[in-house]
Nucleic acid binder design. Structure first.
Length: 368
DNA sequence: CACCCGTGGCA
DNA sequence: TTGCCAAGGGT
């Protein structure tokens, strides 16, 4: 046991802390779709979706996802486009692509059974230290730490830890703490209880200390420093990028869409033709027409601006001026460049910013 | 380690 | 309105 772990052991009555925490969780835990059973696959899917994403947002996505892809087998055989479509609007799309790749690996390499050792689990794409611990403890009852933002907030207060939780190495401090505190009787409930407490009671602002089941163990409560913890340095402001996009219509009422590259921002999602506006000497209309000709060999006529869309990412802001336009001539469609009518566009996954352009699609051409 | 990677809700 | 926040991982 490390020196730091010795200190922690002397800070709290470990046995009593576990009992109080587990009793509270047993009584007060929310009924959530992924708590109906301990199917490792469903635990896995839920944990990936819950990364940086609120429970209320995840619930409908989770239900649709496991309904559409009920098993490792089903997901491993799905087309990526279908998986991304199911993820549409949830954000951080590399989660979906990594999950898909990792599930294929489990299907082929582990006979469709989610592995239950730290090394094998952590080797899967998209499964980092938190998710590995979460799957191991929740699905398999292995006493591994699962340290997320909730756990760091809760334990920083309980144990009065003043390390900056924005620093990557700080997570190790909390993993050490969890290894001291965790119930070997019920690691699943213990890890979930810490997170549930962070979500329901020990919240970032105005925590409900008077309702807290482990208030008697809380050093920050004793010291009156609950609102000062956790320590977290501020992130820097997002940069703003000016974009121009165009909803093009050909003589048959079809519109031009483009698949983004398979790496980077919004990878493999579809979008309306667009470009970053760097200089303002020439009109956006002219720049769009030249861009479409050069990049796609598409002759177009850009018309009026039809809307403006602001899209805030975690690290940047898009300001998009959206134009309507006519597609005069297109040399050829490619894998990543398609002409579709309103009826055909449904299967293509779009980021939220471009979903907002869908309502400017031309009316579907009447047949016959 | 620092930066990249979405989105929606809320004080 | 602005900034912060959420069951993080990849590079």
């Amino acid at each position: 046991m490390t020196e730091r772990q010795e200190i922690i052991k002397n800070q709290v009555n470990v046995e009593q802390f576990r009992e109080d925490l587990l009793n509270w969780f047993t009584e007060e835990q929310r009924e959530l779709p992924w708590r109906q059973d301990q199917d490792p696959y469903k635990v896995w899917v839920s944990e990936i979706m819950l990364q940086q994403t609120k429970v209320d947002t995840v619930i409908p996505y989770f239900n649709r996802f496991v309904s559409q892809f009920p098993t490792i087998e089903a997901l491993s055989k799905a087309e990526e486009e279908k998986v991304l479509k199911a993820w549409e609007g949830l954000g951080y799309y590399s989660r979906a692509r990594n999950l898909h790749a990792a599930v294929k690996e489990v299907h082929e390499k582990y006979g469709g059974k989610v592995p239950n050792t730290p090394k094998e689990i952590a080797g899967l794409k998209g499964v980092g230290p938190y998710t590995a611990g979460a799957i191991l403890s929740i699905a398999y009852g292995v006493p591994e730490p699962a340290v997320d933002g909730n756990v760091m907030r809760v334990l920083s207060r309980i144990l009065s830890i003043w390390e900056d939780i924005a620093k990557p190495k700080t997570r190790k401090t909390f993993e050490e703490a969890v290894r001291v505190l965790i119930s070997h009787e019920n690691p699943s409930y213990f890890n979930q209880a810490l997170m549930e407490l962070g979500a329901l009671i020990c919240t970032p602002t105005s925590p409900s200390c008077l309702l807290c089941p482990v208030r008697e163990h809380c050093h920050a409560f004793d010291e009156g420093t609950v609102t000062e913890l956790p320590v977290k340095t501020k992130s820097k402001k997002q940069k703003t990028v000016q974009l121009a996009a165009v909803v093009l219509t050909d003589e048959n009422g079809r519109t031009l869409i483009h698949k983004r590259p398979n790496t980077g921002l919004l990878a493999n999602l579809w979008e309306f033709p667009n470009m970053e506006i760097v200089q303002v000497l020439r009109s956006e209309k002219t720049q769009l027409e030249e861009k479409l000709l050069e990049d796609y060999q598409a002759k177009v006529e850009v018309g009026e601006m039809i809307t403006r869309i602001e899209h805030v990412f975690s690290h940047l802001i898009w300001n998009i001026n959206v134009y309507s336009g006519k597609l005069i001539d297109l040399k050829e469609e490619k894998e990543d460049l398609r002409r579709v009518n309103a009826e055909e566009i449904e299967p293509f996954p779009f980021p939220v910013s471009h979903q907002k352009m869908l309502k400017f699609l031309p009316e579907q051409v009447k047949k016959g």
